[in-house]
């Protein structure tokens, strides 16, 4: 096919041709990684060697030992909490920039994504400095005389993990919500007002349903990577803030049990997939057409 005929092809076909190389590379790599995980999960680690006889023992162990399911459940809850809080915090910010800011919206968005310009590790670590025993918060409150002794409950728990994750992922939530708001034809708000809606009613009946897909994608965007996060829990979570990601990480490193690690990873993947699917059904997002 000559260049000429490629560009003469119909829109969708042309699109397909142009995205094909990227799609092939990405799907190839993903398929390879996924297949490796599946293979490992049905093998057995025997000290330094790998027993390649297919077995479901790793999965059995995952469901038999309560710690695994408990950690997965806890990770899902922490990720869900972080996603919900982040989206709730990001929504008004996106709303303000989209509907109230008249000029230089792009500058606002750039400033909002500023935390992203810094290393993820540093961002997490800075929370350690703020929340720690001799941290900024404790020192500050102590100097003001509001507390007599430093509060230990700030760091090394699930709360610190959720707080840190929320801060880290906030820009990821603002952008999709902001974009879904930008797509709303402003005359729709005038039409709603014209038809008798107060601003609050217009928000509930027009803006909210039209931004639901943005809210949902923001939630997913945060939920998926935070379930398996192991850096934040390790740095600010302590022993009580440990998540499934830490366990998988340990399986692939210190504990040197790749098969069990793979099985846990696949089970996490399955759980995330089911939750995302259920949530999209529940919110009716599949009905909203993405333009």
């Amino acid at each position: 096919m000559t260049t000429r005929t490629i560009f003469a092809a119909s829109g969708s076909r042309q699109g397909l041709l142009l995205t094909a190389p990227a799609v092939l590379v990405v799907s190839g790599i993903v398929a390879f990684a996924f297949a490796s995980l599946v293979c490992y999960s049905i093998w057995t680690q025997t000290y330094l060697d790998m027993d390649h006889t297919p077995t479901t023992l790793n999965y059995q162990r995952f469901f038999r030992e309560p710690m695994f399911l408990f950690l997965l459940g806890k990770s899902l809850l922490i990720a869900l909490g972080a996603s919900v809080i982040t989206v709730l915090a990001a929504y008004p910010v996106a709303y303000y920039v989209s509907f109230k800011v008249q000029r230089r919206k792009l500058l606002w968005i750039t400033i909002l994504t500023l935390p992203f310009w810094m290393s993820y590790l540093l961002r997490v670590f800075s929370w350690k400095l703020i929340l720690g025993y001799n941290g900024i918060l404790n020192t500050g409150l102590g100097t003001l005389g509001l507390i007599s002794a430093p509060v230990e409950a700030l760091l090394h728990n699930s709360f610190a993990v959720v707080l840190t994750l929320t801060h880290s992922w906030a820009p990821f939530a603002v952008v999709p919500i902001f974009l879904s708001m930008e797509r709303i034809d402003r005359s729709l708000l005038q039409a709603a007002a014209d038809l008798g809606d107060t601003p609050l009613q217009a928000f509930r009946r027009v803006v909210w349903p039209l931004t639901l897909s943005g809210v949902f994608s923001a939630g997913i965007l945060i939920f998926i990577p935070t379930v398996g996060d192991y850096v934040t829990p390790q740095l600010v979570g302590g022993t009580s803030g440990i998540m499934i990601g830490n366990l998988i990480f340990a399986m692939f490193t210190k504990l040197n049990n790749w098969p069990l690690g793979s099985a846990i990873a696949l089970m996490s993947l399955l759980a995330i997939g089911l939750i995302v699917f259920a949530a999209s059904r529940l919110l009716g997002v599949h009905k909203v057409e993405v333009k």
Partner: peptide, 18 residues
Amino acid sequence: PYRRNTNMVFQSYALFPH
């Protein structure tokens, strides 16, 4: 507008897409 007894037909129609 929401307390006026006037209604408008908008240039772009402004129909609610959802």
